[in-house]
Design a binder for these strands. Structure first.
Lengths: 353, 353
DNA sequence: CGCGCCTTTGACAACGTTGTCCAGGCTCTA
DNA sequence: TAGAGCCTGGACAACGTTGTCAAAGGCGCG
């Protein structure tokens, strides 16, 4: 059996091909079909210049051997991998599922595959991931930044890796960014509470080193200032999304003489925890949360939220990325998508106490 | 500037390298550092046998040029890609987020990246994706099957691609499978309703061509039979998860003289729709759903569910995959993970009417 | 001081594919 | 029938990396 023995006894060579269990190559197919190597390549890639008869013989050989083109070798030769990388925070977070899916759909429409990884909000891990993807020579990167310094990407971008940041801006480099209007959304949400009579409004959000969290905090402050309301220190919690911590923060700002009558929550994880705290309370407290939640309309009361469109974020970013790759590239731009206030009940509760 | 001009004027060659924007290679680094090619390779890979002084010179050249190893070429030479593929149904589905993340974590622990794609429940697309991943020479595949014939993977598996199926079994090939106990879980869920006095119980699930849906239906039937209860045709809806369709099916089985007093829903998407239908109803109807939901405990009443551990499914599958790759491979096995009944109120409502 | 041994280094081939270019056979026309 | 032109097919190099092997250099020991 000359085929399978092909790599078997060439002394002094290490034969990494064995790792693939002696996968057939175009050379093998060519030998079996009795044609040249390049002819097989032509058939595999649907290139013209092959007689139907030759093509049939090659196809048969391909079938018989179970040949599949090695894209690694192809990439090496062609220079494009037809794959893009997505670095996000946590694939398990319901906010990133639709975003990721949207990126995938756009990639698919362009014939590209999606490689993704979670940074777990760790800047080092973000960098490690992004650079690993660059080493794979992805054609482009969609990044939801965890860190705030992306100069490490400069050589990659110069080398032609298309790059778009989503959800949060890039740090210290000039690059395309697609964001939600975090400031405006938060300001509108808080203004909504103010319009319903609230003045003592709490804010529970993530750490301000995260851009979205800082922007939403800024929106909260702006709305309060617009209303001429001073913000007490105890009304703000900026310590992250750990449920226990959020719970304590909420309970604190909801007690005492200066207790808030309404709470604005800075993201979906915080909102969920706060809903639990409020549910255990006897008196009604108004709530508006940033990010929508599944089933939010079915709770009692329904949860009023500032919704952002995760899928639109992903889609916009991916489309922009492929436009960079098409060469129809403009200067880096900052695109801001609007948010939408969804009234469901919890945000329309009047102040009590 | 000899470096950048390196590929510039060799006539008759097409220079795909330009695609990378003239990315530096080890050869460039070697030239700049005044060492041999292999020495650069040694430094990049942390191999021994390089003097500290030489290493420093090479490192400096790497920094200066912004060199990053081309993993495509590396893969070609070494035979392993250190990446695994995940084919799932829909990344945006909250059930698959944690599963995907769990697979990613295991991959990361083994130094591998994750490439994933959504089949959108389309067998052709599943095949297309899986084979595209094989062409990329992923080391292994985790597949949540959409189709029921996976013989197309036989050549790949023979060629050494580790393969594990999750959530649903493989069709017509012998392969590792990691499943939830869909039959037992559904049977327990329905038995729970029966134990609370229900006899007229509806079942709304996905199309039975999907294995999990069929198993859950089987569990429903078994529980009903155990209780000696005949099942009326109108009590079962097996037409998929389209919300409008589910809504109609629910409304139908909840009306008329033979109306059900309880509903068992076959997956999270169906459950969500049915919750909305029940919320609009005046009389209380018991509900147990397969799959857990975020916020399920905060609804009125809380939603009783048969919970499966998506993360455990992913983790188990991925670990098994890497054991295949380690060579500590046993015969293909079918692993079934238990489900857990979570009582929250909706499943404990007594029959009314 | 010379021999052999060990360490460091580099030349070279090979991984599997695709772009270039040329050869050979065919058809068509003058 | 000869020459021009087209079509099909194949030889070859190159993509950027790593394994093999051998050479060069340094060192200790007799």
């Amino acid at each position: 059996m000359p085929e399978t023995a092909r790599r078997a006894d060439r002394p002094g060579d290490h034969r990494p091909g064995n790792r693939y269990g002696n996968r057939p190559t175009m050379k093998d197919v060519a030998a079996r079909a009795g044609v040249g190597l390049k002819t097989v390549s032509r058939v595999v890639n649907g290139e013209p210049g092959v007689t139907p008869d030759t093509e049939r013989r090659v196809q048969e050989a391909i079938e018989a051997l179970g040949f599949r083109r090695n894209d690694s070798a192809r990439v090496l030769r062609k220079g494009r991998t037809a794959s893009i990388g997505l670095v996000l925070e946590d694939l398990a977070d319901p906010f990133y599922g639709p975003l990721s899916r949207a990126v995938e759909e756009v990639a698919r429409a362009h014939g590209a595959l999606l490689i993704n990884g979670s940074s777990a909000e760790d800047p080092d891990r973000e960098q490690e991931l992004a650079l690993a993807l660059c080493a794979r020579r992805v054609d482009g990167l969609v990044i939801i930044p965890a860190g705030d310094d992306h100069r490490y990407l400069e050589p990659e971008i110069r080398a032609g890796v298309a790059t778009v940041f989503v959800d949060r801006p890039a740090g210290r480099i000039d690059a395309d960014v697609v964001l939600s209007d975090n400031f405006g959304g938060a300001r509108d949400g808080v203004a909504h509470l103010i319009a319903h009579g609230h003045r003592r409004i709490g804010f529970i959000g993530d750490m301000p080193r995260i851009h979205t969290a800082a922007e939403r905090l800024r929106g909260y402050r702006a709305a309060m200032e617009d209303a001429g309301t001073a913000v007490a220190d105890g009304w703000m919690s900026l310590g992250g999304t750990d449920p226990e911590r959020v719970r304590r923060a909420a309970e604190e700002m909801l007690s005492g003489p200066d207790a808030v009558t309404a709470v604005f929550t800075g993201n979906n994880r915080v909102t969920v925890t706060v809903i639990r705290v409020l549910a255990a309370l006897s008196r009604p407290v108004a709530l508006v949360g940033f990010d929508d939640l599944e089933l939010a309309d079915l709770l009692q009361p329904g949860v009023t939220v500032v919704a952002q469109d995760a899928a639109a974020l992903g889609r916009t970013a991916a489309e922009r990325l492929f436009r960079q790759l098409d060469g129809t590239l403009l200067a880096p731009e900052r695109i801001e998508l609007p948010t939408r206030l969804v009234e469901r009940g919890s945000g329309e509760i009047p102040p009590s106490g």
